[in-house]
Amino acid sequence: MGPIIGRLKKGFRGRELTEARLQFARFRKLLENTRAIMNLVEDGREKLREEYIFDRHYVTSLLDGVLERAGMLVFDAVVLAPEGGEALYLLYDRLKAFAVERFIKEEAKEQSGCFTPSDTKTLPEEPELRLLSCALDWVTGPLPDGEPSMMDLVRLVFDHTIACLRGGSAMAKKRLEWNRGDTRHVIDVVDLEGGDVKEGPVSGYDLGCRPLGTMIAGAGWEGPRRQEGEAKTTKNWIAFTDKDQLSLRGTDDDNRLYLEATLSGHTDADFAFFFAEDPLDPKSFLPEAFHVEKTVLGAMAWNYDLPGQDMEYSLSQLGARLLGGM
């Protein structure tokens, strides 16, 4: 065991639920940090695009923000999965040293951080613009000569972490199941709020979880008794829920999917994140609004800043494709 003792003692009351909550909260934090990096990049792109008035200071603090968030991201990842986290820190330190040397230090020249433009892309003339443009390229990559970009670190973090999210079905107290087409779906539900719940089969509307309710509605589910067709295959899922948050994971070896979603009606809070381990192709079932990024283990996709109704639509489409007849 590494230096981090992630597991709570056996005798601890409510151990499983606490561990589930910690894992849930920590992974959300990891996503929040990822999203913060994306937002910073997007903010920088917007500044370039829309002729903003900014100074060098803006670029420095943007990169600073990226580095801080990336540090937090790595930390979240090693708390979730301590084993082998060393590699993440080594890469992080290397990236940080590069950024400080080439972009942040007072002496850093406006083009010193730029890699030789490998294509026809021309750099802007004004020094502040050029510095920002180079810094953003460095964050997102890909870079020539196998030089790692910040995005490479982010991808590595997800590949490192995703396996630790498996498991947890044993603690579920509610079960939701139905047939669609020739597939039988079984969802074990863990209520993170930990309220007193009746055990056994439940109706989708009793779940008290907006994103899962929306997905189920999208899948055309109309009640526990109504089942169509003869099931040839079974898909098993586990869902961690509270009022407006959902973590839904496919637990079968050929269906390793991880979905994190918040649906609260507040644009700044709502998002959906998706990770699909190979050989699943997320493009085959994700609605268009998702941005897809390939990693070594699979692919990840996310979607945020959508107004509540659009997010609702996105989730119900996702429900139809994941939990419906497919």
């Binding site: 601890f12 409510g14 909550r21 909260a25 934090k29």
Partner: peptide, 27 residues
């Protein structure tokens, strides 16, 4: 509540689970 939960986890990482009672207190 979220930040505090994570703080408690971080303390317990440092203190080898000496303060797991805090989880219940926060809950």
């Amino acid at each position: 509540l979220g930040e505090t939960l994570l703080m408690i986890q971080e303390l317990n990482l440092l203190a080898r689970n000496q303060y797991t009672e805090l989880y219940d207190v926060l809950d």
